[in-house]
Nucleic acid binder design. Structure first.
Lengths: 288, 288
DNA sequence: TATGGATTGGAATTATTATTTCATATTGCC
DNA sequence: GGCAATATGAAATAATAATTCCAATCCATA
């Protein structure tokens, strides 16, 4: 180890990636316990970010002092400054996308041409896709697909902003030869359409705040008929969630007052194609 | 505030979303300084996660004791337990990212569940967004917006797979109070609708291979009436391109036989909102 | 405008946590 | 195998941070 005095100008890794590289680089030459905490740090960066020296040391199976020595070997003056790097990493991961969107919003407001608007919508869509990738619950997806695959007819229920998703679902179900019924408002025959649904059918209902009253009303009616509902909505407090057998929370980023639909679309397509696959599999089994 | 003894079983928000909802819910009834720190907490959740009581209090412009009172009012026994919720939020956001990667790896190895389908659609959407970001021509965007902004009525023309985009455009134009007409196939009155269009109007037409014959036919008719067309399509050889004053080439990635719509949607929204802005600006100028 | 209760600020206190120290163990080298 | 250098464990200490307490202030109400 360097024994230079306080004048030495050793480079201290300031960002996580550099730090990671440094650790990996020196891995071979580290003493046993230090190597142990080094491995732990790279495997559990979140724990380093939030834990106390004592708790981290315990999880990693070393003494707190070892943790501090580890930090010092890397050029930090203590555990606390090492921890800063791990915290900064978490902070940046989360903020980068949001900040980008905010910057774009500001640019668009400042009248920076229409390209800025376009970029904003692209960014909003990307953000939404990222979010849903992280938050979607696999089990819910399986449940929803199982439920829909059993249905004789799939009713698709959505108005206004969510309506495009409904039309796409209806289109895709049609292409997959799955019987479905889009509940449109145009002809004013919704009540009759809904009355045909039975517990052997199923519903995909989509609604976001501010929830279209008609969608909520129709969802209530149809659920009272015993028809199971799969809902796509934006919060646990959504009125749709309470009628649904399975519901998905989708948080879409917005830009210029319009929310993205990209996450909802991806989920909708996954449901649709998932149902198609499940039916095909079931069909094969029955024949065999 | 409740003065019940320690036996009371008040529900303490354990996850960030519940906490957020609780704060929003009580917002009105909170004392001034507490409300101040509440607002700060929701606006700067990362600071709460990482800061110390003193540093946070300073940033929010209150005393540390106020911060603790805030936590206690929410049912926590101190700042520390409140902070846990904010930390958990960051941790989850972050860890699920890793989990996603692991899930993808698992999928590659063994029997792909329905999650794989979902990931596929997300990937297709992301790819499409990336592509269009790179390839979109700013000048075309400006031209198209200028053309549409002058129109008395904007006709929106799309069938089948592109139809969801058309409905979203119509919805957004409506919200922006821009006169528009969606050309639907349902009522079979398309020919009449189209015949009303004049050169003072404009059309947004959307069609991808295999081009819906009806869309092409209607686009031809309407362009022969001298109505300018903005087209969104997938190739220079598209029949739509030849009728259009301005056209965009959008390459959407596909998955499981269904193409993404995310890029088309982003472009459609940019056009719509761009027109809205241009109109507003023009309106201001005219008044001045 | 006087009065009681709630709210707030700021310092004192307590708790927690990082760091240091030193005795002990381990390792590499002659 | 013995010696020096290095590494490690455990407890003491120092630093930092959370919490509490009390006086001052604000606010509603009579």
């Amino acid at each position: 180890m360097s024994l230079d005095g306080p004048t030495m100008d050793e480079r201290v890794p300031r960002d996580f990636e550099t730090l990671r590289a440094t650790i990996l680089d020196r891995r071979e030459s580290l003493p046993k316990r230090i190597a142990q905490i080094a491995a732990y740090a790279l495997d559990n960066p979140d724990d380093i970010a939030f834990g106390t020296a004592a708790s981290i040391a315990a999880s990693a199976g070393v003494q707190p002092s070892t943790l501090i020595r580890f930090a010092q070997q890397l050029g930090f003056d203590g555990f606390t400054s090492l921890q800063q790097v791990f915290r900064e990493r978490l902070r940046e991961r989360n903020s980068s996308y949001d900040e980008r969107l905010q910057a774009l919003r500001a640019k668009a407001e400042g009248g920076a041409g229409h390209r800025a608007i376009f970029d904003g919508f692209v960014a909003a869509a990307s953000t939404s896709l990222n979010d849903i990738s992280r938050t979607l619950d696999d089990a819910h997806l399986e449940d929803a697909i199982a439920l829909l695959a059993k249905a004789q007819t799939i009713y698709v229920l959505a108005k206004r902003r969510s309506y495009p998703v409904a039309t796409y679902i209806a289109y895709a179900l049609g292409k997959l030869k799955i019987r479905n019924q889009l509940i449109e408002s145009a002809a004013g025959l919704n009540a009759e359409m809904i009355s045909f649904a039975t517990p052997a059918d199923a519903v995909i209902a989509i609604s976001f705040s501010p929830y279209a009253p008609a969608t909520i009303e129709e969802a209530r009616t149809i659920s009272e008929q015993g028809v199971p509902i799969v809902a796509i909505t934006d919060s646990a407090f959504s009125p749709l969630a309470q009628f649904a057998k399975v519901w998905f929370e989708v948080a879409e980023a917005d830009f210029a007052g319009f929310r993205s639909l990209s996450a909802t679309m991806a989920l909708a397509m996954a449901l649709t194609v998932g149902v198609g696959e499940k039916r095909r599999d079931a069909g094969r089994k029955r024949k065999a």
